[in-house]
Simulated assay, not measured.
Amino acid sequence: MPIDAAEAVAAEPRSTSISWDHKDIQLYHLGLGAGTAPGRPDDATDPDELRYTLESRLHVLPSFATVAGAGLAMGGGLAAPGVDVDLAAVLHGGQSVRLHRPIPVRGNAVQSSKVAAVYDKGKAAVLVLRTEATDDDGPLWTNDAQIFVRGEGGFGGERGPSERLALPDRAPDRVVERPVRPDQALLYRLSGDWNPLHADPEFAKLAGFDRPILHGLCTYGMTLKAVADTLLDGEVSRIGSYRTRFAGIVFPGETLRIRMWAGDGRVQVVVTAVERDDAPVLADTLVEHS
């Protein structure tokens, strides 16, 4: 069997040294559409946006943890002992980030990755790839990526948890729309995800799409930025954790509709694609904050 769950979970973590500076942070933020205020695409001087783009004012959106070190940790997890899968059968099903403290603008860390769990969903297996980063001052972040591998279920393992979130029985507290620039995937991929699915029309057709699609983690970062700017006064250091389930695709040039329900130290979010009759994009999405 291509996945040996016991061997994969028992394998020692793979560690690598990573580093980043303000240029990596700025590039990541620009790849999320930072730089221009909503509704003012011709204005690149909005002070609320300069905190994402100007090195003298820079702070770090916590979702940067998903691309730190050029996002190599996920690939390392898929190459772990006991894991031998066809990448064409792999889907990114969900993502969570837990911050142990704010991410510095410049840093050096050791990032370790391992298969934390393997679940049997019947027609698919789910790998939980865990990445932990630590610097000289201690733990920085923990990422969990839920990876569906089609055709690899049915091996008799645990089904795993179901993390569905029931939405509040009321209208959202805030609804915002964020446009995805036609070239946004081309810019976002410079942070490390070079999958041609997001740039090459011919490759996208082979994968079953009529044109390249946006990275799911780009939508993930755009959504967190929208929540921070709308409900947290842009104070990204207040964010403690963020998780989502990828429920659908986004095409460059579309518009994200982001619905937010604010609670006590938490914001629940649903994201849809405006131009496709609110087709689901992100579901079971939760931001926890101070």
Rank of each mutant, 00 (worst) to 15 (best):
I3T: 04
E7T: 14
E7F: 01
V9C: 04
A11G: 06
A11L: 09
P13F: 11
R14I: 12
I18C: 03
S19C: 02
I25Q: 07
Q26A: 14
Y28M: 06
H29R: 07
L32A: 12
T36L: 05
P38A: 11
D42S: 11
E49H: 04
L50K: 11
T53A: 12
T53W: 11
T53Y: 11
S56I: 06
S56G: 07
R57W: 08
V60I: 06
P62C: 02
F64T: 10
A65G: 06
L72Q: 14
A73F: 05
M74G: 05
G76L: 15
G77I: 09
P81V: 00
G82Y: 05
V85H: 09
D86G: 13
L87M: 15
A88V: 03
A88F: 13
A89D: 12
V90K: 12
V90S: 12
L91P: 00
H92Y: 08
G93A: 05
G94L: 03
Q95L: 01
S96I: 03
H100I: 02
V110R: 15
V110G: 10
V110L: 04
Q111K: 14
A117C: 06
V118N: 09
G122A: 08
G122W: 04
V128S: 01
R130N: 03
A133M: 13
T134G: 00
D137V: 10
T142A: 03
N143P: 02
R150I: 01
R150Q: 14
R150C: 01
G151E: 08
G153R: 10
G154F: 06
R159Y: 09
G160P: 04
P161M: 06
S162N: 05
E163S: 08
R170F: 02
A171I: 00
V176R: 05
R178G: 02
Q184S: 04
W194I: 11
L197Q: 11
K205E: 14
L206N: 10
G208F: 12
I213N: 07
H215M: 04
H215K: 12
L217M: 14
G221A: 13
T223I: 12
A226D: 09
T230C: 07
L232T: 05
L232W: 08
L232M: 11
E235S: 03
R238Y: 03
I239M: 01
R245F: 08
F246D: 05
I249L: 13
V250H: 09
F251R: 04
T255M: 03
L256E: 01
R257W: 12
R259A: 15
W261F: 05
G263A: 00
D264N: 00
D264F: 04
G265T: 07
V267C: 10
V270G: 08
E275W: 09
A279W: 08
L282R: 02
